[in-house]
Design a protein around this nucleic acid. Sequence first.
DNA 1: AGCGATGCGTTACTTTATTACAATGCGGTT
DNA 2: AACCGCATTGTAATAAAGTAACGCATCGCT
Lengths: 168, 168
Amino acid sequence: MPDHDHDHVIAATFAPHDHRECAHRALDEAAARLAEQGARLTPVRRRTLEILLESHRAMGAYEVLDRLAAEGFGRQPPVAYRALEFLVTHGLAHRLQRLNAFAACLHPGHDHHPAFLICRSCDKVAEAAAAPIRDALTAVAAQGGFRVERATIEALGLCATCAAEGVA
Amino acid sequence: MPDHDHDHVIAATFAPHDHRECAHRALDEAAARLAEQGARLTPVRRRTLEILLESHRAMGAYEVLDRLAAEGFGRQPPVAYRALEFLVTHGLAHRLQRLNAFAACLHPGHDHHPAFLICRSCDKVAEAAAAPIRDALTAVAAQGGFRVERATIEALGLCATCAAEGVA
DNA sequence: AGCGATGCGTTACTTTATTACAATGCGGTT
DNA sequence: AACCGCATTGTAATAAAGTAACGCATCGCT
Ligand SMILES: [Zn+2]
Ligand SMILES: [Zn+2]
Ligand SMILES: [Zn+2]
Ligand SMILES: [Zn+2]
């Protein structure tokens, strides 16, 4: 994906859009990616991803678990945690540290560790290109002799849509 | 503090140093800062800060609580959480989202929200200048119409000291 | 001394996450 | 088919992290 698409991705997340298509495409990409890797998209895993894909919000593990249990899957925490961990490991979902929650990845297959933009008004989460940010972090760290291996970058703020609606 | 001092700060955290002096100075600065603000550095609060200042590691709330309880303070979670929250609010300690833990601020009085560098080998945590990183994040977000209000920037990696000791 | 605000301690509880183990199902081999 | 090994799913039980609610002591002020 070319870099300039990321602007679009952020806007597309927060602005009204055909989300059914949005979710459907993400699910297809996820399935394709797993097939490549020889990993299995079992019913619980698929359903977990679908649940995350219902909105652009992040969901807590127990919120996901309630949904799964209601649909006949197991009702114990490991059921949700395992499915979520699988999705995260395979790059199909992300974990948000600030929220203790998980969000579906909207464009998997591009092995990435993005920066997250969390709107405090509508709670939606967008992924932003982390490269320039990570570069700045890596540079600052390198000056102190520190080698960055993994970075957590999460921003809380206000999205354009909510701002336009007059949210302070 | 001039910006170039930050390099020093990172190195000083991970390299062997006179930590007694290091902690003592941070405590003095903290007390001075609170006096300015008219906030009270009560015994629990002071002791909590001292405990955090014993090392450059981040500590969980319950780890702090155990220490406080052993020294005659209350043994219920709110005791630790309140003291820690007070310190964070007044800029004397930081919360690390990735770790669910708290670390003393080493140079309070400069109202800052730094980036954190966490060494996966020695567990020490250093504060790095967040300005350039935050700028990059703000710019990326702005292109998508998102206004960043608070940023969480935490890096996991290897410090110079551990690298020099041959840790992979 | 009287009074309101702050701080500290407790009990009780919620939310989040992990460990351990049993049962099932699925591929590949014999 | 019968067998094995392994991934997967389910359960119970427990740990770890965080919050709510309330009473009492203490501080700062009038
Ligand atoms: Zn969508
Ligand atoms: Zn919004
Ligand atoms: Zn030190
Ligand atoms: Zn180290």
